[in-house]
């Protein structure tokens, strides 16, 4: 009688260089106990130097490997059709001068952008006008408005990125985390199509 094996490919596997990838690393498996341990030990890929740092394992390859070994097994796949194997080299520390340079770049760049923005939208004359509307007096240095405004500016950015109140208010992801996730998904999608030799095929008709 045919036994059914359920396979769900993992989205992403992180491993070190020159390791052997077994099926249990790349996928979740549900199967009869008699075949489960053999299934788990199937080698689906041996990482070599020329693999680069990303390898895509297609579910078709996995099915082919399983069916070549077990005649009486029917494979059912669920979920993603491929696993991305990412080879992480040993964590390189961030170089401090490089980091400081970028920090200062961002710092000064934002300061400059904001000043350009204020100039662009005539922020000065608007603020003077607000001062005149509220108090009835003219003032070329409405610092009473400008200083709280400047502090509020930073506060607003922090509020948007949910930095300070992270755990206190709620544990929904911040827009930044969602944005990072989306970017990673885009990269993954690109890799799935471009690193996977089987996913693109040119049929010449000339």
């Amino acid at each position: 009688m045919e036994k059914t094996v359920y396979i769900r490919m993992r989205n992403r596997v992180q491993t070190r260089a020159k390791e052997t990838i077994y099926l249990k690393d790349a996928a979740q498996i549900i199967a009869d106990d008699s075949v489960l341990s053999k299934l788990q030990q199937i080698i689906i890929h041996k990482l070599t130097e020329k693999d680069g740092n990303i390898v895509v394992i297609d579910v078709m390859k996995v099915i082919q490997l399983i069916s070549s070994r077990f005649r009486d097994v029917e494979v059912q796949t669920i979920g993603p059709a491929q696993t991305i194997i990412e080879i992480v080299s040993k964590e390189k520390g961030v170089s401090v001068p490089f980091f400081l340079l970028i920090w200062f770049l961002l710092f000064f760049g934002s300061a400059l952008t904001l000043m350009n923005f204020h100039d662009d939208v005539s922020m000065k004359s608007v603020q003077e006008k607000i001062y005149t509307i509220i108090t009835g007096k003219r003032e070329t240095k409405p610092l009473l408005f400008q200083i709280p405004y400047s502090i509020g500016l930073g506060l607003g950015m922090i509020l948007f990125f949910n930095h300070v109140f992270k755990k206190r208010i709620n544990d929904e992801p911040s827009p930044l985390e969602v944005e990072m996730f989306n970017y990673q998904m885009d990269l993954d999608n690109y890799v799935i199509v471009n690193e996977n030799k089987e996913s693109m095929k040119r049929v010449h008709d000339d």
């Binding site: 904001l114 923005f117 607000i130 001062y131 509307i133 509220i134 108090t135 009835g136 007096k137 409405p142 009473l144 408005f145 400008q146 200083i147 709280p148 405004y149 400047s150 502090i151 509020g152 500016l153 930073g154 506060l155 607003g156 950015m157 922090i158 509020l159 948007f160 990125f161």
Partner: peptide, 24 residues
């Protein structure tokens, strides 16, 4: 409106927060 200039402090703060969120 001829109001107290100290009213400008909350106005400036909220205006700043708004622009900050806009920039973010």
């Amino acid at each position: 409106l001829n109001l107290s200039p100290y009213l400008l402090i909350p106005l400036g703060l909220t205006g700043g927060v708004y622009i900050g969120m806009l920039a973010a």
